[in-house]
Design a protein around this nucleic acid. Structure first.
Lengths: 306, 306
DNA sequence: ACATGTTGGTTCATTTTTGAACCACTGGAA
DNA sequence: TTCCAGTGGTTCAAAAATGAACCAACATGT
């Protein structure tokens, strides 16, 4: 966690960003100073010190004001986000979170971006206009541990971390393929067919899930360590693939392969740190999402027949 | 921009977060002090000052170290994100951005979350593992102006801001409805049918786009100021709705209504501030996305027939 | 031409922050 | 026990940051 941070990070005084921002906004030293209740001489010095640390000019000084340089412009968005983050922090300490506002950082694996859950995000954003949803699309389970995300949505059998996990629904999976491909399937165990699967142990087609599945004779030819291209490949007619029903049923061009039934799969988990349970907007979001998803339980659990 | 910030924001010294973080990580004053090359007395005082400003304890002092309190735990993720943001800023100034890493903030309107563009995000995240994509789902065009996002993707006719806009593709729209609904449609101008449309001027069914469209006799009954529920409503069989083809063709359960052809619609724009053109990871992302989307041009422009 | 109200820059006495040294205390090892 | 290596807390002289006052330069309106 430390080694990845540049050594020079410590060289900066984070408070300098506050001065930088004040000047960037007002365009003058005096105006910026007033906006943060400081002296313009102080602002000038802090700015000079910051520029010295950066070893570059952040503003062009002109009579009549300061204008951001190229580098200053590039720095501005970062400074703004720092400010937003600190504002969110101050809301936490002030307990003003009772009136929910601010950002929520949600970490999801890429394939969930193909699910109806994104609709829920949209709906939430509509109902709570003062809350911005930041989706962090990543497979890294670690986001939550490192506390970079407030909420994490995962698709897994169990959750072991020291986080608060709510199991939303136990999902089903089924074998999917393109509509064109489906007509080629006979009730013969998958002779001549192709699997699109994961990069697992090089057990050729002897992988247990192949043998135990409804199409043991199909060959595992496409091995991909990521769900999204599996979906797109299958939709393009490359072969059979196991997908959670709430993905496969939704993705255009995919149909459930005949001669099989959905089987139980992993669960959808809503994870957050126990310390965040109290903050209003996180609670709001978690409850909202849990309610919406559970109310569409059929979409995820997908019984024996569609 | 100022009024929405709490007054107390100015009361904090942002640099205190750096001390807070150092102690939170190491668990001791002296360790924290060493990690940021400061004296443990200084760390102690800064921490005390911060706690004083917050008017609450952030750590429990015990012989042998400091442990975060509830509030401290809640503050930690914000402090971590501030640090990440400052690290990104320092990468910018150090020019280390040549080896792309760090966060990219992308602002998109909710309905684009239903498009294939999310697949591109997933693919990008796969190819550049050191870059995290933060999707900010929002209709607010202002995100870019306020510089809270690095890149903004919009669906519009023209772009007027002082931003660098790349027109990716000029898209087509068409009338969509559920498959069930489609069989009820005859070549009679839409008699007895229902429109799902926007909250526009209360011109009843006399809206120009209704009259000029392929189904002038259909009634505008559902008025929604948001695209996503229009999609879901139409998919549920509530009626006809205009959608960009790259949404409608993709959404399960929707089909193009008969007796009509796609017509030109707005364009997909990729927007970013000119100052960001140089930073490596942003450039990387923009080029990647532009290339991917343009290579699937047919999906968006969708000629007269499917 | 001439005030007037800006701007950023500079100076210097004052205030604030800092770090070295010290203290008291604890827990484990010798 | 005795010692030692760790804690966090406190003190005080030294260092650094600050703000009021002043300066020169540039606009603008009289």
């Amino acid at each position: 966690m430390e080694s990845q941070m540049p050594r020079r990070l410590a060289a900066y005084d984070w408070d300098d960003l506050r001065f930088f921002l004040a000047v960037a906004r007002t365009g003058t030293l005096r105006g910026g100073a007033e906006s943060i209740q400081a002296n313009h001489a102080t602002v000038s010095r802090r700015l000079a010190a910051f520029e010295n640390a950066v070893e570059a000019r952040l503003f062009d000084r002109t009579k009549g004001g300061l204008r951001l340089t190229q580098l200053g412009e590039e720095l501005l968005p970062h400074a703004l986000r720092v400010e937003e983050e600190i504002a969110a922090a101050s809301r936490v300490v002030a307990g003003r979170d009772a009136r929910p506002a601010g950002p929520i950082y949600v970490s999801i694996p890429p394939f969930l971006a193909l699910s109806s859950i994104v609709d829920d995000f949209a709906e939430f954003g509509r109902q709570f206009e003062d809350i911005d949803i930041h989706l962090q699309v990543s497979n890294a389970f670690a986001d939550l541990e490192r506390r970079e995300a407030d909420v994490s949505i995962r698709y897994a059998y169990e959750v072991i971390d020291d986080v608060v996990g709510r199991r939303l629904v136990r999902c089903s999976k089924a074998v999917y393929c393109s509509a064109d491909y489906a007509v080629k399937i006979k009730d013969d165990g998958g002779d001549g067919l192709t699997w699109v699967g994961w990069n697992e142990a090089e057990g050729e087609t002897t992988a247990p899930w192949v043998i135990k599945g409804p199409f043991p004779n199909a060959r595992l030819r496409h091995r991909i360590n990521e769900a999204v291209p599996q979906v797109t490949l299958a939709a393009a007619g490359a072969g059979l693939t196991y997908l959670p029903c709430f993905i496969g049923d939704r993705y255009p061009g995919l149909v459930r392969a005949p001669y099989q039934k959905p089987v139980p799969d992993r669960s959808l988990w809503l994870l957050l740190h126990s310390d965040l349970r109290k903050t209003a907007r996180i609670r709001m979001f978690v409850d909202f999402l849990a309610h919406r998803i559970k109310s569409r339980k059929d979409e995820f659990v997908a019984g024996a027949t569609q």
